[in-house]
């Protein structure tokens, strides 16, 4: 019963992380296009896009927090696990416990972030706080806070699931972008 619940939750969480990841990926593309549009509009047509600066800032935050849960999912968060890899060969049980503890700490830390950012999102949703200069370009703050809060919540959940499943494995390096294409 517990096992099926965990498996189900884990499926949902993974699906959410992958979806957010795809969305964040589109933001990367949008960033390339927006900045190039501004460069051309300014240089060739003397008509710079007035919101370029804000849009760039906005998209960086979106990229980071939309992608973070997926980074956690594939275990690519920066770490130095040389010691754990060595230990794994001698004391696999102990190593698994240490990994559980590390994931538990991570879950708590991400939960703290979620806990402090949610109220901020609610508040800014109501006050309609914006950044930028009125009459030039403004954008509301709340979507940023929403993405951060949701992302931290999802990351916390992913770490918690890793505690239960204890499934992260030692690797020399995780850089799938340089893997040979699987044929």
């Amino acid at each position: 019963m517990f096992k099926t619940a965990v498996a189900g939750l884990s499926k949902v969480a993974n699906a959410a992380a992958i979806a957010a990841n795809a969305l964040g990926t589109l933001v990367v593309l949008a960033l390339v296009l927006v900045v190039n549009y501004d460069v051309v509009a300014r240089g060739v047509f003397s008509a710079p896009f007035r919101g370029a600066y804000e849009v760039v800032q906005f998209s960086v935050v979106l990229i980071v927090f939309l992608q973070l849960p997926d980074v956690v999912r594939v275990d690519r968060l920066t770490r130095s696990d040389g010691f754990l890899n060595v230990l794994h060969h001698r004391r696999p049980g102990l190593t698994a416990s240490i990994r559980r503890i590390i994931n538990a700490i991570s879950a708590i830390f991400m939960a703290l972030i979620a806990y402090i950012v949610w109220p901020e999102f609610i508040e800014m949703y109501h006050t309609k706080d914006y950044f930028g200069v009125p009459g030039i370009f403004t954008a509301p703050w709340w979507p940023i806070k929403l993405v951060i809060a949701a992302s931290a919540t999802l990351c916390s959940l992913m770490f918690a699931l890793k505690v239960i499943s204890a499934q992260d494995r030692p690797h020399l390096i995780r850089a799938p972008e340089h893997d040979e294409p699987k044929t």
Binding site: R42, S46, A47, P48, R50, G135, I136
Partner: peptide, 16 residues
């Protein structure tokens, strides 16, 4: 805000 001062000059484009 001073980018908006430029709205008083014909054809001037403000660059941030």
């Amino acid at each position: 805000m001073n980018l908006r001062y430029l709205e008083g000059i014909d054809g001037a484009a403000g660059v941030r």
